[in-house]
Write a protein that binds this DNA or RNA. Structure first.
Lengths: 343, 343
DNA sequence: CTGTTAGCGCATTCAT
DNA sequence: ATGAATGCGCTAACAG
């Protein structure tokens, strides 16, 4: 047989093998309409014999859809993002699309490279967590790009693309208000990575709540790792300035703080209350109260919105951008001072 | 301008816009050799004006590399796998390749679908966590596939493809031995998902260690969630049969057990020692001793091996399969009974 | 029902 | 240094 030995079999190979024209083969693999029973069987046999799989590139060149969408996130390892990705993938699969996954590490330079790659591959849509929210180069890309784009987790300022985000302000305010209602007055807010929009929003929520209650905001936004967290709390302890409660603006900080309090022998919720933004696996076991983001909803809605655009169900660029704000959930366990609930 | 309005600009569009032939444009975007200074500038301007990005599909059709590799894992949300993915991606990027990410949920049916998709896209290589280790259809696929494949985390029995795995037997044995050395005699092994190769290996390690020390293995492999874990331990408590120590064969079970012990008021490491397979974020904070898998190494080595194959640096299918076993790390914190270490 | 043919966008001879 | 022509594998329009 004169099959293309070095690489994959082609449609022509199959046609020759089955003794038919290429069109017949093409028709068979595209639904099998207008092909006689017997011919179909013969062609199918040839396909199996040659392990033929159509060349996607050739189809795309003919103008078929690529059925590829790109998901660009800061990191896969972050449980929050991997949760979103999982949900988005599920949606993509339901639309018979495959996902190209790119990571930016929040670096605008890498982000540009990701965009180059996905343009190269002619992805039909882009689900993007922008590295920075204020970016003229992203704005420019949005302007010239002809493929649908949906941002999630963070918006891009002044951009005319849809975005799906959590209401971070509201979440932080709910959390802080709750601590205030418990009667705490000195509520410390611990944070880091303040360049991120999400963090800024949470800070705003915290401040709003404190101000609203006539309390002074106490903040330290230099928490980068366990070490800095320990130092900060030790210092406050040394000065006899320990707070009544701590609001941690993100996942990892909540964990650091919990660890520090434990090491310093401070009983969480007895001596110091703790409430964090973002849930994590062990939080429930440890009774740590948190603001929970609906990550699967985020990924799912973002992806559904994207496909609505792709399928032309939404007016497109002409219309104004539409930001969907998802409400976070205040999950009360015991670290905030709430009583243990007995099931 | 007669530019292809509805879609992306083509090389011909650029050529027309710049008043040159297509060849010249092609040369410019492929290194720019043999193009005069002035022409180059003119063409570049046209490229920018039209936001031209070469059509990858056309290049592939011409025989260029797709520069695409597929990563097929059970789930992205699992921190173990997302760690592997992150590392593999880093390697892929260093080889100028993009990653297509597919998930199987450990379902052989979905796995087949993933393989269809990646064949369609002509990925140059496949990094696979096989849904099941005993699979004739996978074996068949390996046999006919002409693209390099590397399995990781789990092997496929009797397959002639490389695999990179953790030495699970050894890890479990190290863990159990350590508990034995602490003087514990009644060491309970708690597990689930026993259909997975990794779990089976860990069980073997546990049994080897127990048998080797002349102790009776005590196992319950029906732990599926928090509820079952609680029931099992409560039962043992009711019978006065609580063990001295517990070895949890995986991540989530360790967490369940920790949670149960806490709820039952049993002091971990004082009343009952605990040691788990697989590290997790809060384990350090909680002082839970674990067997740590080098996930980034796993992903990295698997990917590097794959690229060695892709780049023809390894003999290929002819040679026997080569399984790389990575040594896990026993990370001793306090839950196993070890003293707190003061830095 | 089935086959022939043109052309998608690009890289690549082979001329000039 | 530059361009015209060819073909990669496939689909679709057009015969038969």
């Amino acid at each position: 047989m004169a099959v293309n030995a070095s690489t994959h079999a082609t449609l022509a190979d199959v046609a020759r093998e089955a003794g038919v024209g290429t069109t017949t083969v093409s028709r068979l693999i595209n639904g099998g309409h207008r092909v006689s029973r017997s011919t179909a069987a013969r062609v199918q046999a040839a396909i199996d014999r040659l392990s033929f799989v159509p060349n996607h590139a050739a189809r795309i060149l003919k103008g078929e859809r690529t059925r590829l969408i790109a998901v660009v996130v800061p990191s896969v390892a972050d449980p929050f993002f991997s949760g979103c990705i999982e949900a988005a993938q599920r949606v993509a699969r339901s639309h018979h699309c495959t996902t190209i996954l790119l990571t930016t590490q929040n670096d605008p330079e890498l982000e540009r490279e990701c965009i180059r790659v996905l343009t190269l591959h002619r992805t039909e849509g882009l689900l993007l967590v922008p590295a920075v929210s204020k970016s003229s180069s992203l704005l420019e890309f949005f302007r010239v790009s002809r493929t649908p784009i949906v941002c999630f987790d963070r918006p891009v300022f002044r951009a005319s693309v849809d975005a799906v985000v959590t209401d971070n302000v509201r979440g932080a305010r709910m959390a802080t208000d709750h601590l205030i209602q418990h009667g705490y007055r000195r509520i410390l807010c611990l944070g880091g990575e303040t360049q991120l929009w999400t963090i800024q929003q949470r800070l705003r929520g915290y401040r709003d709540a404190m101000t609203g209650a006539g309390l002074d905001a106490i903040e330290n936004l230099q928490v980068h790792d366990y070490k800095t967290a320990e130092q900060i709390i030790r210092n406050m302890q040394g000065n006899g300035m320990l707070p009544d409660a701590i609001f941690a603006v993100k996942n990892s900080i909540t964990i650091f703080v919990y660890e520090v309090l434990r090491k310093l022998g401070l009983d969480v919720s007895k001596s110091i209350a703790l409430l964090g933004f973002d849930d994590f696996e062990l939080a429930e076991a440890l009774g740590i109260s948190v603001v929970q983001q609906p990550e699967d909803k985020l990924g799912e809605i973002a992806a559904e919105t994207l496909f609505a655009h792709i399928n032309g169900e939404i007016a497109g660029r002409a219309s104004k951008r539409n930001t969907t704000k998802l409400m976070p959930n205040l999950v009360l366990r015991t670290s905030c001072g709430c009583p243990t609930v007995q099931p």
